[in-house]
Amino acid sequence: MARNVSTQRKIVVTVVAWTIGILIFFPILWTFLTSFKTEAEAIASPPSLFFFDWTTENYHEVQSRSNYFLHFMNSVVVSVGSTLIGLIIAIPSAWAMAFSPTKRTKDVLMWMLSTKMMPSVGVLVPMYLLFRNTGLLDTRTGLVIVLTLINLPIIIWMLYTYFKEIPGEILEAARMDGASLSKEIIYVLTPMAIPGIASTLLLNIILAWNEAFWTLNLSAAKAAPLTAFIASYSSPEGLFYAKLSAASTMAIAPILILGWFSQKQLVRGLTFGAVK
């Protein structure tokens, strides 16, 4: 009897949860479906959910009209580049703070975090002028520099919380056995740290891929990543739903897949370890 009630309850919960889940996901599903419609079908009334002539025309069209691939590569270079450089700078720092903490380590960590709290708009003017005067405006290099700097505190924090969980005794033992600092890092620390580093990498690529303040303000036709390229569809002459949908689908698909793999790290990284 009790079992019956709980099965019934489970079914009700399932129906409610799925309905809400699909409603929340619907804008994305709708974008995906619309990307396979013709422009006429995209604005047809009544709209059709699945029963239309599926076409991949829009995907070809988006590429041939606006060199979509260039902007896609800009996004890849900027997000992966800034993340890798950030990791190279952050790994030694996080390692040192996790394993040789001093009295000031906590203050340093908190101070690093505080740089993340500064609103971007507070430094928009000088950054724009600096970039303009040094020729970095609308270059991939410029965007990589800025995104590395804004995400560096998150990278350090995430790595720090992961490194903290590695038992220090193992390093002590290695040191006792005469391992040098470099050997310690290569043979002992790295294998244990790889999962944490991978999670940090993943989360940061997501954050950098979706960053939409600096990319919008510091790039134009040449270096514009997908965030800025998609924004150009906001002008009235860009009002083609099917093409907008195709461009959007390609822009969000890689990150959706990456993000679904790193749900847990998302929580940890975005709360600076405050919620695990």
Partner: peptide, 12 residues
């Protein structure tokens, strides 16, 4: 499904 919107770039 519920997490998805957070992964979408703001402009999209």
């Amino acid at each position: 499904l519920v997490i998805a919107p957070f992964l979408i770039m703001p402009t999209v």
